[in-house]
């Protein structure tokens, strides 16, 4: 490398100071000016994370928020060259470490994950949408799904109540987060394990409700075909209205 070790060390010291605020000795540096760099860099990181996690930010007391951001800034080596993706690294850092326990906020990781997924779905690269007809038979025609969606499961229902209350309702919650085709807006809905199976199958390839029935029946031990098919009909009709299903194909 053409760069001397000494210069390299100086550059790393300056960067390290920005991240930790711990005093450094660098030749020629004006100490009354140096703190501006820490302030500027911290503001970028803090505002980026804050904008990505508005609900978490509002939920946590200021000192807890500041603590988490400082820990992240100090201890995590940011990898993405695209700062808008940094909040995902924040989620990973918080959930891979002990912070939810330490702050006694069991629902923290779920809330961060949920807020990140909203961004992920909103910005997800455009997928190729197969040809479809907007008119068809909901029971017998194959259904085309909008691929701009993510399925996830949560332990705490932070999608319908505040973080503290959600901590009291530990369970298993399946959430479908999707991007509306026309507006690009992101919406979500809570669904059942059975619905998750339907969505996952449709993401693989278009199926009709009638084709899906036998598998669902055996997998979930539901023998009453008529009730099951009615249930699926209502579900598919609902997600068609929501543009999660786009239409029909042969």
């Amino acid at each position: 490398m053409l760069l001397n070790t000494e210069t390299k060390t100086i550059q790393e010291k300056l960067a390290g100071y920005c991240r930790t605020g711990e005093p450094v000795e660098i030749p020629g540096v004006k100490h009354d000016r140096l703190h501006n760099y820490r302030r500027l860099v911290f503001n970028v990181i803090n505002s980026t994370i804050q904008q990505a996690y508005p609900i978490t930010r509002e939920w946590l007391p200021d000192e807890e928020w500041q603590y988490l951001v400082n820990e992240f800034f100090k201890k995590h080596d940011a990898q993405t060259p695209q700062v808008w993706k940094l909040p995902f690294e924040f989620y990973q850092f918080i959930s891979n470490n002990h912070y939810a326990d330490e702050l006694n906020k069991p629902a923290l990781n779920d809330l961060l994950w949920f807020e990140w997924l909203e961004i992920e779905v909103h910005t997800m690269p455009d997928q190729i949408i197969p040809d479809y007809r907007s008119k068809g038979n909901l029971s017998s025609d194959k259904l085309v799904i909008n691929p701009h969606l993510v399925l996830t499961k949560l332990t705490y229902p932070i999608h319908k109540m505040g973080g503290n209350e959600a901590a009291l309702h530990e369970g298993l919650y399946f959430i479908l987060i999707y991007r509306q085709k026309d507006t690009g807006n992101v919406r979500f809905m809570e669904i059942s394990a059975l619905h998750v199976f339907v969505i996952e199958e449709l993401l693989k390839s278009p199926w009709s409700i009638e084709q899906l029935l036998p598998d669902i029946s055996s997998l979930f031990g539901l023998d009453d075909y008529q009730t099951l098919s009615q249930h699926l009909f209502h579900f598919c009709s609902d997600i068609l209205d929501k543009q999660i299903l786009l239409g029909y194909t042969n």
């Binding site: 760069l3 550059q11 790393e12 960067a15 860099v41 995590h76 940011a78």
Partner: peptide
């Protein structure tokens, strides 16, 4: 300028030392 050091991005513009080895680099 530089925005990354010691394997971490900082997302702001830090001043490079005005040095000969930095020029070559």
């Amino acid at each position: 300028s530089y925005t990354k050091a010691a394997n971490a991005h900082l997302y702001d513009l830090l001043p490079v030392p005005f040095r000969l080895d930095a020029i070559n680099h």
